[in-house]
């Protein structure tokens, strides 16, 4: 109540007039009431003023908080969006895991078959060195060696292409990393806003950035990996073909 202290001088006057009324035996009840009311109203005026100020402050704080559109954006757009992006992370990691598992499942028997054939040939070769092979068996070994050469070449090609598939499947790490980093930033922002929410209980909440500044930042910021169905704006390329077309239109 520092801003509107009781008017002491006025109060003193009212008190004196009340005392003089009380000392006067002829005073009417009505005059006494009036005098008391005057004293009371002095106090009430100060109280109402303070109450009004507090109400206005609370109202302003609430309005400011509501007007910060970033907060409603967070709740309406960003959080559901983050959920979708995280879902996409799950999909990408799952696909990568399945790709790798498929390659391993397909490649293992191939490698096993090759090693089995090599082992068998080595045995035959040892017998040949010990002169244990008949002419027929030797011919058979010759055919087996030929078959082994051609088959091992095609099997190795198969394994190598599997390795490339495994290699390419690792690109999820980069893309999911970028998406998760963005979600972490969002969580940071939400945390900051919660702190602000707590702060406005005691003081005015002043938005740190104006809306115009935010929009400006929005335009130039990097979008990161595109999540299917979540393209952040209309002018985002859907894939390499779109990029190629755009570059071609620029004379590339």
């Amino acid at each position: 109540m520092e801003n509107n202290p009781l008017d002491k001088q006025a109060l003193l006057e009212k008190a004196r007039s009340l005392v003089s009324l009380l000392e006067n035996d002829d005073v009417s009840d009505q005059d006494l009431d009036t005098s008391l009311d005057e004293i009371m109203s002095l106090r009430d005026a100060s109280l109402f003023h303070e109450l009004g100020k507090m109400t206005r402050e609370i109202h302003d704080s609430i309005m400011n908080f509501r007007m910060d559109s970033r907060i409603s954006d967070l709740a309406e757009t960003d959080i559901p969006d983050a959920k979708d992006r995280l879902e996409y992370v799950i999909t990408m990691t799952e696909n990568a895991a399945n790709t790798v598992l498929t390659v391993v499942e397909k490649g293992s028997p191939v490698a096993e078959r090759l090693s089995e054939q090599a082992r068998h040939l080595a045995e035959q070769w040892a017998r040949f060195r010990n002169r244990e092979l008949s002419a027929d068996e030797l011919r058979e070994m010759g055919q087996e060696v030929e078959g082994f050469f051609s088959e091992s070449e095609s099997m190795m090609t198969e394994l190598l292409s599997g390795f490339t598939e495994v290699l390419m499947a690792q690109d999820f790490q980069d893309l999911t990393g970028q998406i998760i980093r963005r979600v972490i930033n969002l969580v940071d922002e939400i945390e900051g806003n919660l702190v602000e929410l707590i702060k406005i209980q005691g003081e005015h909440y002043i938005p740190e950035e104006t809306k115009a500044e935010e929009q400006n930042k929005e335009k130039t910021k990097l979008e990161g990996p595109q999540v299917p169905g979540k393209e952040t704006s209309d002018d985002v390329m859907k894939g390499q073909d779109d990029v190629d077309d755009l570059l071609a239109s620029l004379g590339f």
Binding site: L222, E223, T232, D235, V236, M237, Q240, D242
Partner: peptide
């Protein structure tokens, strides 16, 4: 890069990039 916004590709082209590939990409690309 994962950046696939038109403005960004145009900007890269203006700055003199020789090729632009968006992630995820293939070995063939």
């Amino acid at each position: 890069t994962a950046e696939a916004k038109k403005e960004q590709i145009v900007m890269a082209a203006q700055e003199g990039v020789n090729g632009y590939i968006v992630k995820p990409f293939t070995a063939q690309t």
